[in-house]
């Protein structure tokens, strides 16, 4: 069984200061990290590998910034790492390229993705399932393979967010399954990613063949496949926080309920 996990490097928010008043994002330290939900997706794949045995393939778009995400994944236990030579694709192009990658690799039974990207909000899971004609299971905090089916657990309080009214007791978690092949989207509440053994980091980084590169041509992608749909028109900012606003007890109760 082969599991594909796409990884997206994102700008580490720890090095960022958002100034709402100036309407600007200041980047003090330009560090990149793997999108947190994607890392949980990788952990879910590695757990299936540990329990049932599977080949775990990670893929990221490049050429820049992606090497660390891919090599870290290799150190954590991914068997192959693929760098797709398309710089910062949008959701649509990502989906085209990842679907083409699955066809290129053949024999991909399960794709586990992070449910959304912290830096763009893109969520490729449903679209990728549609493009591959795979089943889709979203909102997973746990994922396993039972026979020929992917089975997930979804937290009761995660589905339907952000409409959660927390004063109510959280509904029970539910299990869902779908026959393979399938795409599963893992949330940031998925299992805590493992730390790699330090020696594996050194080995992965010193292995010149740790990352395989594929060009759009290798994947048979045409120019129209590489045409982005999402056009960034800039940034906007939440209103500045206003402190000291007086409220009634009812207001407070309702604010607590809605946050």
């Amino acid at each position: 069984m082969n599991i594909l996990v796409p990884l997206k490097p994102i700008l580490d928010p720890a090095g960022m200061i958002v100034n709402r008043k100036a309407g600007r994002v200041f980047v003090n330290r330009e560090n990149y990290m793997t999108n947190p939900a994607d890392k949980r997706a990788l952990e879910a794949a590695l757990r299936i590998k540990d329990e049932a045995g599977a080949g775990v393939i990670v893929a990221a778009f490049g050429p820049d910034r992606s090497a660390d995400s891919l090599l870290e994944a290799r150190a954590m236990g991914a068997d192959r790492a693929i760098l797709i030579d398309i710089p910062s694709p949008d959701e649509t192009v990502s989906v085209h390229a990842l679907a083409a990658l699955c066809h290129h690799l053949g024999q991909v039974d399960l794709v586990i993705v992070g449910d959304s990207a912290l830096d763009t909000g893109a969520s490729i899971g449903p679209r990728l399932a549609e493009a591959l004609d795979f089943a889709f299971l979203g909102g997973a905090v746990q994922c396993s393979v039972e026979g020929n089916a992917a089975r997930i657990i979804r937290r009761g309080d995660s589905r339907g967010r952000p409409d959660r009214a927390s004063a109510r007791p959280a509904p029970a978690a539910t299990a869902h399954e779908a026959d393979l092949p399938a795409v599963v989207a893992v949330t940031r509440e998925g299992a805590q990613p493992r730390y790699p053994h330090g020696g594996n980091i050194i080995t992965a980084y010193r292995d010149a063949n740790a990352i395989e590169s594929l060009s759009p041509a290798d994947l048979g992608l045409s120019d129209s496949d590489l045409q982005p749909v999402a056009i960034e028109r800039g940034q906007s900012f939440p209103p500045e926080r206003e402190f000291g606003k007086q409220a009634s007890l009812d207001d407070i109760a309702s604010v607590i309920g809605h946050r």
Binding site: D68, E72, P196, Y205, R206
Partner: peptide, 13 residues
């Protein structure tokens, strides 16, 4: 070298 930067990142975390 990048392997040490990665090692530090892991150790720091």
């Amino acid at each position: 070298p990048p392997e040490y930067t990665a090692l530090r990142r892991m150790m720091r975390e």
